[in-house]
Amino acid sequence: MRILHTSDWHIGRSFHGHATLVALHGVLETLAGQVRDRGVDVVVLAGDVFDSATPAAACYTLLTDALAAIRDAGAEVVVTSGNHDSAARLGFQAPFLARAGVHVRTDPRTLADPVTIDDEHGPVHFYGIPYLEPSIVRPLWPDETLRTQAQTMSHAMSLVRADLAVRGGRSVALAHCFAAGIEPTPGVEREIRQGTLDVVPLSVFDGPDYVALGHIHGRSELSARVRYAGAPLHYSFGEQHKPRGSWLVDLDARGLAGVEWLGLPVPRPLVTLTAPIDELLGDERFAVHEDSWVCAQYTDTAPQVDPMRRLRARFPHCATVVHAPAIVAEDSGSTYRERLRDAVSDTERIDAFLDHVRAGEGPSERERELLADVLDDRVRAEALA
């Protein structure tokens, strides 16, 4: 059996205020083409199908189109909910979808009741474990201590192993969590842990032939049989160096036979450019990035006037601008208020102001000359008044 492991579609998510539906639609069309070309039997989608518990109507349309394209390509689909999804909304009419070959698993009470799909070697059991919030699922298993993600996932996998021991055969588990050995992308994956208590040990996933994880947006191989596929689109500049794609998993009669990475296209590349603003605006070495999503970090000591408008004249898809001065003045230990209070002349007050608004850069020699002329003119004018 050939399986494609994908996750974290985050349908409806924006990228620095820009809609991503069109780009995601194109990427998922490519994924459906890979399903057809590589003879995939089952696509597993490990949570965070939507980016919101209340997705807009267009998000449902995109999901319908993507699932229909995968089914037309010849594969069945097993879907679980993630921490961004509303399990109730995603699981709506799940029994009817199953008749069409799309198996949506969002109910914790049925996580040990697998979707069973046969191939020439016999059955393969797919255990869809939805995102399990301990405080919500605790009443389902009152005899268990479920305070953390690790405890909750451990109990869920114990139920899976108990069922598998009775059924026998090959198996695949889907789950959505932080697993040991993984660091989240800052500002991207919504926090579902407290300190290190909710990191799920790798040993929890013992048992199935393959474990398809979701939640982390970059691909990762925790072991030969436990992996993250990551998101199909880049949703943050923190992800820009992480490839996009999915895992192609082969099972033979004995179990896991091989795993291959299938890359997906990047509709618009992401790049972080760091230089003084004049170089960003004029240097030819940046010309290759003029059609990219750009995070511009200008290194001038002083903040620049209207940097986004100026940068977008060259980089129309500049998404964010960061002032990252290459030279940062040492902290004098005095606050702006204290410097103004201690100033005894207008020159010292102006110095304090410019030093404050320019992140440590006071007036240049030329500016000092001009300020001296202006202050002298004011003194003369007051004397003649």
Rank of each mutant, 00 (worst) to 15 (best):
L233K: 14
P267A: 06
L264H: 04
L262S: 14
A253V: 13
V266Y: 03
E260M: 08
D252V: 05
F237R: 01
P269F: 05
L264G: 02
L270P: 03
F237I: 07
E239M: 11
E260K: 02
F237P: 06
P265F: 03
T272A: 14
V259F: 13
K242S: 07
E239C: 03
E260N: 04
L262A: 05
E260Q: 14
R254F: 09
G258M: 01
W247G: 09
V271R: 15
L262N: 08
A257R: 04
A253K: 14
F237G: 01
L262Q: 15
L270I: 00
F237Q: 05
V271P: 09
E239A: 02
L256Q: 14
H234P: 05
H234F: 00
R244Y: 01
P267F: 00
V249A: 05
Y235Q: 09
P265L: 09
V249P: 13
H234N: 02
G255I: 09
D252C: 10
V271I: 14
G263I: 10
S236Q: 07
V271L: 06
R244E: 00
G263H: 11
G245Y: 07
L248K: 08
L270S: 02
P265W: 01
A253H: 14
V266P: 09
D250K: 12
A257Q: 01
V249Q: 00
S236E: 04
D252Q: 12
P269K: 10
H241D: 15
D250L: 03
R268T: 13
K242P: 04
L248I: 10
S236V: 00
Y235F: 09
L233Y: 05
G238R: 15
Y235H: 01
G238D: 13
V249R: 03
P243V: 05
G238P: 00
G238A: 15
P232C: 08
W261E: 11
V271G: 09
G255H: 14
D252N: 14
S246P: 01
L256D: 06
G255S: 08
R254C: 15
D250E: 15
V249E: 11
P232A: 07
V266W: 10
W247V: 08
P265S: 06
Q240D: 02
D252E: 08
L256N: 12
H241N: 11
K242L: 12
L256E: 05
L233N: 12
